[in-house]
């Protein structure tokens, strides 16, 4: 299967099951480079599974998936880290390292890539500044509010300037004002050319945005429309 160079994500009749329970069935859609896309649907509709298939935490049982030119179906285990370095992920459960300060949490994304310490320092402070948390670099996650932790995760996901940013319920635990702030950050990142895919059940996030919205229900793709 050949992939158009302008396509960032391509799903072609991709399915995934867990213990004979369908998580996703025959999903087909495409996301172009630089797009901002929302995946929506009720809890258990398969949003998180879809994101996991993109960053290769799961493999499709059938169908075909390609991400940034990588053939996910035939990706070797040793190549998975390389794919993930092209993707920034804002995890639903944050996945911040409790015993490391905010600087180190964000820096981890660069250290994993083998960046030099001087470069790490510059980029981490820049990234923290972009989410308004430069002054919290020495704090630990436990001392930060939910919204602040969410912004640290965004800083970590974007510090290495990935081609694709995935966010799983990024405003799930945030109040309306904080959620708006987080969305503003996403829009700024998208404006710089990063493709963004946001999984959310919060309709307010994509209403009147004019962005692509992929609707899932019980593992089925029910609609691809505009917000």
């Amino acid at each position: 299967m050949t992939v158009d160079s302008s396509i960032m994500i391509s799903f072609s009749t991709a399915s995934k099951e867990y213990d004979n329970q369908t998580a996703l069935r025959d999903i087909t859609f495409m996301v172009e480079k630089g797009e901002m896309v929302f995946i929506t649907g009720p809890s258990g509709s398969g949003k998180t599974t879809l994101l996991k298939l993109i960053y290769s935490a799961e493999r499709p049982d059938s169908g075909h998936i390609s991400v940034a030119g990588w053939d996910i179906n035939n990706l070797k285990e040793s190549t998975i880290p390389l794919l993930r370095r092209h993707i920034g992920v804002v995890f639903q459960d944050f996945r911040l390292l409790a015993n490391r300060n905010i600087f180190d949490n964000v820096a981890m994304a660069l250290r994993i890539r083998g960046a030099a310490e001087r470069e790490i320092k510059t980029k981490v402070y820049e990234s923290l500044k972009s989410v308004g948390l430069r002054h919290k670099s020495d704090s630990y996650p436990r001392n930060l509010s939910g919204g602040e932790q969410q912004r640290v995760v965004i800083a970590r996901a974007t510090v290495a300037e990935p081609n694709l940013l995935l966010a799983d319920e990024p405003t799930g635990n945030l109040d309306a004002d904080t959620a708006e702030g987080v969305m503003r950050i996403f829009k700024n990142i998208n404006a710089k050319g990063t493709t963004i895919m946001i999984a959310t059940h919060n309709k307010e996030l994509y209403r009147n945005t004019g962005k692509k919205v992929i609707r899932l229900d019980s593992g089925n793709l029910v609609d691809v429309g505009k917000g």
């Binding site: 935490a57 880290p81 993930r84 992920v89």
Partner: peptide, 16 residues
């Protein structure tokens, strides 16, 4: 193990 799982998701190689 949680930390290692996070490392993996961030793109860490097995050597790292």
């Amino acid at each position: 193990s949680d930390e290692i799982e996070t490392f993996k998701l961030l793109g860490a190689t097995k050597t790292f």
